[in-house]
Amino acid sequence: MRIAAIDFGGTAVKLGVFDSRTLVAQEEIAIGEAGVDLASVADRVGRLLDGAEPAALGIAVPGIVDESGSSLLAAHGKYADLHGVDLRAWSREQFGVAATVENDARAALIGEMVAGSARGARDAALIVLGTGIGTAAALDGRIVRGAHGHGGILGGHVTVDVLGPRCTCGNIGCAEALASTWALAADARAGRLDLGPALAARLAEDGAIGIRDLVETRDEAESQSLLERYISVWAAAVVTHCHAFDPEVVVLTGGVLRSADAILPALRETVHQNLWSSSFRPAFVVPEDPSASVMRGIAALAADPDPLDLSEGQS
């Protein structure tokens, strides 16, 4: 059974074709200033399918999905040209099957619970540290969605500083506004950060800096101080998520985790120190292939509306 998956990511659109749960073909489309071209996406997916008709198709989007499960309702600063587009109908027109549309962090958590680092867990949380900060949660084998589709996915928009900057979402002092890749780049360009010589040279050369630049220049006091502040903000978001959902395992993923050796030990220690005294200290796991988590999850959801059915005998 061929299942097509489309992941509208922060910097690229990832495309994949699965045979059952095995990824058999994939590629990426870079996102330019003009935004995403759905006609090009359809053409590339068709090539990956190589003439086969998909039995199902899943689409992951970086924001809120409307109550009908057909379109991207809101994603601040992202994919404005997709807002309100009926992606289920688009999929039916292009491929003969109505797409399953879901938030990308939820899809990533499903992917890790179905066949990844959180396999077998019934209560799990996911934190995506990348361009922004995305989150998701599952309780007793069910993905948290809430009454209006916002449940569990706004953990990057918890206030960690009531005197902090206004976030793109409209809230004040969000974790994402203080310690995300986009916030780092914006603050650096605006001259709001104290940068050491090496980090300043990278900014001058590339016009932007990312978390990996902080890690690679952490022998400079300025970079080390900034990295420690970011880890504190991430830890605050994780603690809040754990207090809200009480997971047995926390999946940490996203581009920041490419530097897991430099970040994960301090992050785990800070979270465990700051959790409520009687709270369970969850295990922290990092996916082996985080780039495939979303596609794996959205494909599983497209094939089965209840992919986390972990009853005895389910593989």
Rank of each mutant, 00 (worst) to 15 (best):
D161R: 04
L163Q: 10
G164Q: 07
G164T: 03
G164A: 05
P165L: 10
T168C: 12
T168I: 15
T168L: 15
C169G: 02
G170Q: 08
I172D: 13
I172G: 11
I172N: 11
C174H: 05
C174I: 03
E176R: 01
A179H: 02
S180K: 01
W182E: 12
L184S: 03
L184Q: 04
A185T: 10
A185K: 08
A185D: 14
A185N: 00
A186Q: 11
A186Y: 00
A186M: 07
A186T: 12
D187A: 15
A188P: 14
R189I: 06
R189G: 06
R189V: 04
G191F: 04
L193A: 06
D194N: 13
L195C: 02
L195Q: 03
L195A: 03
P197Q: 11
A198W: 06
L199E: 07
A200W: 02
A201G: 12
L203E: 04
A204K: 13
E205A: 13
E205T: 06
G207T: 01
I209C: 07
G210Q: 04
D213N: 05
V215E: 03
V215P: 06
E216F: 07
E216G: 11
D219T: 10
A221G: 02
E222T: 09
S223T: 01
Q224V: 13
Q224W: 09
S225Q: 12
L227F: 03
E228T: 08
E228Y: 06
E228F: 10
E228R: 13
R229W: 12
I231F: 03
S232Q: 12
S232M: 10
A235F: 10
V239W: 00
V239D: 00
T240C: 07
T240A: 14
T240V: 11
H241N: 08
C242A: 11
H243A: 15
F245K: 01
D246P: 00
E248L: 08
E248R: 13
V249S: 04
V249P: 02
L252F: 07
T253W: 09
T253C: 11
G255S: 05
V256L: 04
L257N: 00
L257K: 01
R258Y: 09
S259L: 00
A260M: 01
A262L: 00
L264D: 09
L264T: 15
P265W: 00
A266N: 11
R268W: 00
Q273F: 12
N274A: 12
W276F: 15
S278K: 14
F280G: 11
F280R: 10
F280A: 15
R281I: 00
P282N: 05
